[in-house]
Simulated scan of single mutants.
Amino acid sequence: MRIDKYLKNARVIKRRTIAKEACEQGRVFVNGKSAKPGTEVSVGDEIEIVFGTKPMKIRVEKLTEHVMKDDAKEMYTII
C-alpha cells in the first residue's frame, strides 16, 4: 500500500493530499529513509512523521483498504 494512502486510512493524517505534500516536503520517513508519496509500506515497517518540531514514530501493524473509524487505531502502534 502507498504511504500516502496508508496515512490517510490509518487516520494519522486527515487527507491524502496533505499526506502526499508531507512526503514531498521530506517530512515522512519509512525505516529511516525519506519517503515519496508512492513508497510502498508493509506490516512491520516503522514510519516517522515530523509535525513541526515533534516527530511521531509508528509501526505498521495491519494494512486495510477500507477502514471504519473505530478500527483505524488497530492499524498502527505508537513507538
Rank of each mutant, 00 (worst) to 15 (best):
T77Q: 10
V30P: 06
T39N: 12
Y76R: 07
I49Y: 13
R16N: 06
T64K: 15
A10P: 03
D71T: 00
V43P: 01
T39L: 11
I49K: 13
V60S: 08
R15H: 12
T39A: 11
V43K: 15
G38F: 06
D70M: 09
R59S: 04
G26M: 12
E74D: 12
Y6K: 06
S34W: 02
G52A: 04
M56I: 09
S34Y: 04
E40Y: 11
M1P: 08
N9P: 05
I58S: 11
L63K: 11
V30W: 11
K62M: 04
V30Y: 11
N9T: 09
S34K: 15
I3E: 00
I3T: 04
T77F: 02
G26F: 13
S42E: 14
R2K: 11
P55T: 06
G26T: 10
E74A: 12
A72G: 10
I18A: 14
E61C: 02
V28Y: 06
E21K: 15
D4C: 03
N31Q: 04
K14N: 06
L7W: 05
C23K: 04
K8A: 10
K54G: 01
E46P: 01
V50M: 07
I18K: 13
I13R: 13
K73E: 06
K62D: 06
D70G: 00
V67T: 09
K73V: 11
E24M: 08
K73W: 03
K14C: 02
V50Y: 09
I13Y: 08
L7E: 02
K57I: 07
K14T: 01
D71F: 10
K73A: 12
V67Q: 01
P55L: 07
E46I: 09
R27N: 12
A22D: 01
K20M: 07
K62T: 08
E48H: 00
K62H: 05
P55A: 07
I3L: 04
V67W: 11
V12I: 15
I58M: 14
D45G: 06
S42H: 13
E61F: 03
E21I: 12
L7Y: 02
G26L: 14
I58R: 06
G32L: 00
Y76H: 03
K33V: 11
A10C: 09
T77N: 09
Q25M: 09
R27K: 15
K5T: 12
Y76E: 04
T77R: 15
M1N: 12
G26R: 13
